[in-house]
């Protein structure tokens, strides 16, 4: 499954300062759908290079990290239960900073 991941608000610094990552994610074994829950742990393992605690807390994003799935707040699509489809664009923006 081809996905576009975008990191902003400084989160890109946790993944080689690349803001946009075009990635290929396989469905988890024995599952028909890819959920955000799975995608997050995949991102943590495969994309985040340092300080994963700035990105995640427990099995979800750290409070203060905003998630948009296809330009839509993930709080509307069920957060961790959001089903991800091929060619989806997922944006992570950290709000935890000055400004």
């Amino acid at each position: 499954m081809q996905l576009t991941l975008e990191f902003g608000g400084g989160l890109e610094l946790l993944c080689d300062s690349e803001k946009i990552h075009k990635v290929n994610v396989d469905l988890p074994n024995g599952e028909d759908d890819l959920t955000m829950k799975h995608l997050l742990s995949w991102v943590r393992t495969n994309v985040i290079k340092e300080r994963p605690e700035m990105f995640m807390k427990g099995d979800t994003v750290r409070p203060g990290v905003l998630v948009l799935v296809n330009d839509c707040d993930w709080e509307l699509s069920g957060q961790l239960d959001t089903t991800i489809e091929d060619k989806d664009v997922i944006v992570f923006i950290s709000t935890l900073h000055g400004g």
């Binding site: 902003g8 608000g9 400084g10 989160l11 890109e12 610094l13 700035m54 905003l66 948009l68 330009d71 944006v91 923006i93 950290s94 935890l96 900073h97 000055g98 400004g99």
Partner: peptide, 17 residues
């Protein structure tokens, strides 16, 4: 983010952090 404004700006903040 929804307006697609210029928002490279956010980078410096976390660098501070």
């Amino acid at each position: 983010s929804l307006l697609k404004l210029n928002f490279d700006t956010l980078t410096y903040d976390i660098r501070m952090l």
